[in-house]
Structure formats: structure tokens, C-alpha cells
């Protein structure tokens, strides 16, 4: 089958790729672009490990053909910490609360919850768990992930207060 050349924008950078149209976005990000933080866990859209942000929205990269993502901005786990390598608040809280063990599901969880918190800044525990329910984790039992998300929210509130008091 013939390959097609096209450009993908990942983490603000353009990449020229030459792949078959059937190649999954998850595989292109990992194998052709070399960003291996996006993990492949099931290839049928259930486990959530491969979740990336496309135009800011969390999506399963195993259920998108790379060619479909031409012209769209894709963000992966490698772009969540800032350029100095400093964690986002959520990453910091996952670290402090022991919200990861083997870490294979972690990139999908970080991206899903970063996006979720942006559009739902003050969710209940039930809402957090619902948003998280599309990401399977076999190690943690989710409890410390939920705690980390809650602490991220609290931290956000504290920062808001600080700003307000300035």
C-alpha cells in the first residue's frame, strides 16, 4: 500500500511523516515522530493509555488515523511539564500523593485530567472519578490519583486566593 506524506503538528513542532493512511496516530507519534510517552495499551479505545490532546481535547490516539490529524495541534505528555522540566500542578500532586506505580497508564491520565480540570475547575469527587473512569489503572486502585486531582484543585483555589489578595 502506498504511503502518503503529510505534516503533523505535535507539541508546537511540525513533523513531516510518510506513512500509510491506515497507520494509527498512536503508532505515528511513537514510531515515526519518536515521542514514546504516549502508550498503547489496548488499541480498541478502552484503556485510555494512548490519550493525547487534539485541539485541546483528550482523544484516544489509537482510534484516530494519523492522516486525520493533519493541520490539527496535537499535544502529548512530553509537553505537559514546562521547558525547564518543572511539573504541572497535577504532575506534582501525582508525585506527592503516590498517584502512579508502573506509570504506564499515567500519560493518558495526566492528559485526560489536565483537560478535564480546565473545563471543570471545581468537580466533585464523583465527577473526578467519572472523568477518570475512561483510564484503566491496574496498580493504584485509583485512590491516590483521585487525591492528587483533588489536591490540584485545592492548589488552584489557593493560587486564586493569592492573586485575589494582591
Amino acid at each position: 500500500m502506498s504511503k502518503t506524506a503529510f505534516r503533523l503538528n505535535v507539541n508546537g513542532q511540525d513533523y513531516e511523516v510518510l506513512v500509510e493512511p491506515r497507520k494509527l496516530l498512536s503508532d505515528v507519534i511513537r514510531d515515526d515522530i519518536g515521542l514514546t510517552g504516549t502508550h498503547v495499551g489496548c488499541e480498541h479505545g478502552v484503556c485510555g493509555a494512548c490519550t493525547v490532546l487534539i485541539e485541546g481535547k483528550p482523544q484516544r490516539s489509537c482510534l484516530v488515523f494519523a492522516i486525520q490529524a493533519r493541520g490539527q495541534s496535537i499535544r502529548t505528555i512530553e509537553d505537559v511539564a514546562d521547558e525547564n522540566g518543572d511539573y504541572s500542578t497535577l504532575q506534582q500532586m501525582l508525585h506527592e500523593e503516590h498517584g502512579l506505580q508502573c506509570g504506564f497508564c499515567t500519560p493518558g491520565i495526566v492528559l485526560t485530567m489536565e483537560a478535564f480540570l480546565k473545563s471543570n475547575p471545581d468537580p466533585s469527587e464523583e465527577e473526578i472519578r467519572e472523568a477518570l473512569s475512561g483510564n484503566l489503572c491496574r496498580c493504584t486502585g485509583y485512590q491516590n490519583i483521585v487525591k492528587a486531582v483533588q489536591k490540584t484543585i485545592l492548589r488552584g483555589h489557593e493560587e486564586d486566593k493569592e492573586i485575589a489578595s494582591l
Binding site: 485510555g48 490519550t51 481535547k57 484516544r60 467519572e130 475512561g134
Partner: peptide, 9 residues
């Protein structure tokens, strides 16, 4: 419907 990421697409 499905999960958060599934609903987006």
C-alpha cells in the same frame, strides 16, 4: 456515553 475522551470525538 462512553468516557470523557470518547465523548470528545
Amino acid at each position: 456515553i462512553g468516557h470523557y475522551a470518547i465523548r470528545q470525538r
